[in-house]
Computed example of a mutant assay.
Amino acid sequence: MKTTKLPLIAASIAFVAAFSNKSFAQENPVTFGIKGGASLSSFGGDLKDTKSAVRYRLGLTTDIALTNNLFVFTGLDFQTKGAKYASKGGSEAKYNPIYAQIPLSIGYKVDLAPNTKFVVHAGGYAAYGIAGKIKNDPNNDKRSVFGKDGFKRLDYGLLGGVGVEFGKIAVSAGYEYGLANINNAGPKISNRNPYLTIGYKF
Score class of each variant (00 low, 15 high):
Gly178Phe: 06
Pro7Leu: 08
Lys142Glu: 15
Tyr85Ile: 02
Pro194His: 03
Lys5Phe: 10
Asn115Gly: 07
Lys22Val: 02
Leu66His: 12
Glu176Met: 07
Asn191Asp: 00
Pro194Val: 14
Thr116Met: 02
Phe146Met: 12
Gly160Arg: 11
Leu196Val: 07
Glu165Leu: 04
Asn136Val: 13
Ile64Tyr: 14
Phe146Pro: 09
Ile9Asp: 08
Val145Glu: 00
Leu196Lys: 00
Val164Pro: 11
Glu27Trp: 14
Leu58Ala: 09
Ala122Trp: 01
Pro97Glu: 03
Ala17His: 09
Phe24Glu: 05
Asn68Pro: 08
Tyr108Gln: 02
Phe202Gly: 12
Thr50Gln: 04
Asn21Gly: 03
Phe73Lys: 10
Phe15Gly: 07
Leu66Trp: 05
Tyr85His: 10
Leu58Asp: 11
Ser91Met: 07
Phe118Tyr: 06
Pro97Thr: 15
Leu60Gly: 05
Ala53Arg: 12
Arg55Asp: 00
Ile130Pro: 05
Phe78Ser: 07
Asp46Tyr: 02
Ala93Phe: 05
Pro138Arg: 13
Thr31Pro: 13
Lys133Phe: 10
Gly59Phe: 00
Ser39Lys: 10
Thr80His: 10
Ser39Trp: 03
Lys142Pro: 09
Lys84Tyr: 14
Val110Glu: 14
Ala86Cys: 11
Lys117Asn: 09
Val119Tyr: 10
Phe15Met: 06
Glu176Ile: 06
Ser52Leu: 07
Val72His: 01
Gly37Trp: 00
Lys148Ala: 15
Asn136Thr: 06
Gly186Trp: 11
Asn115Leu: 09
Gly132Arg: 03
Asn136Arg: 06
Gly129Leu: 01
Gly147Gln: 11
Asn140Ala: 10
Ser39Ile: 13
Phe118Cys: 09
Pro97Tyr: 04
Ala17Val: 12
Glu165Gln: 15
Val54His: 14
Ile13Ser: 10
Met1Val: 13
Tyr200Asn: 05
Lys51Thr: 08
Leu40Val: 09
Arg55His: 05
Gly82Trp: 01
Ile9Arg: 01
Ile98Val: 07
Ile130Gly: 03
Ala14Pro: 08
Ser23Ala: 13
Glu165Asn: 13
Thr50Phe: 05
Phe43Asn: 01
Ile13Trp: 12
Ser41Glu: 04
Thr61Ala: 09
Glu165Val: 03
Arg57Val: 04
Leu66Tyr: 01
Phe24Leu: 00
Val30Cys: 07
Tyr156Gly: 11
Ala53Phe: 15
Lys48Leu: 06
Pro29Gln: 08
His121Pro: 02
Asp111Leu: 15
Thr197Gly: 05
Val145Thr: 12
Tyr125Thr: 02
Asn68Asp: 05
Phe166Leu: 13
Ala18Asp: 11
